[in-house]
Amino acid sequence: MELEWFVYLSLILFSIGILGVLTQKTAIRILFSVELILNSANINFVAFNSYLQSTTSGTVIDQYMGWVFAMVVIALAAAEAAVGLAIFISLYRNFREIVVANIYELAESEEDE
């Protein structure tokens, strides 16, 4: 088990997430994809944290920085999910759907040319 493995795993998960963000139609699935991206970042944080713990006799910050950052990311995701739920529900109430491509009220319509 090497550091590279974790980084590659993270990379693949990240790519899946990016692909999801690009191709998904509904906002909620895009949010799922964003969670995947965040998790890939977390994998990197934790893996590098362990790597630094084992290789360096650095300061406390060097040894636990990754964990703290991972926790911050998780908290961020929780907050994001809470706000996201509210946004989705209000979107759904207004448009009766949350397909992102169909919600473009701010865009200028074609007839205004």
Binding site: A78, A82, I89
Partner: peptide, 18 residues
């Protein structure tokens, strides 16, 4: 947090908006 809390929130969101 993720598997319990956030997942339930996302499930709610999915159920309530689809």
């Amino acid at each position: 947090v993720y598997g319990g809390g956030i997942a339930v929130l996302l499930l709610f969101a999915g159920r309530l908006t689809s």
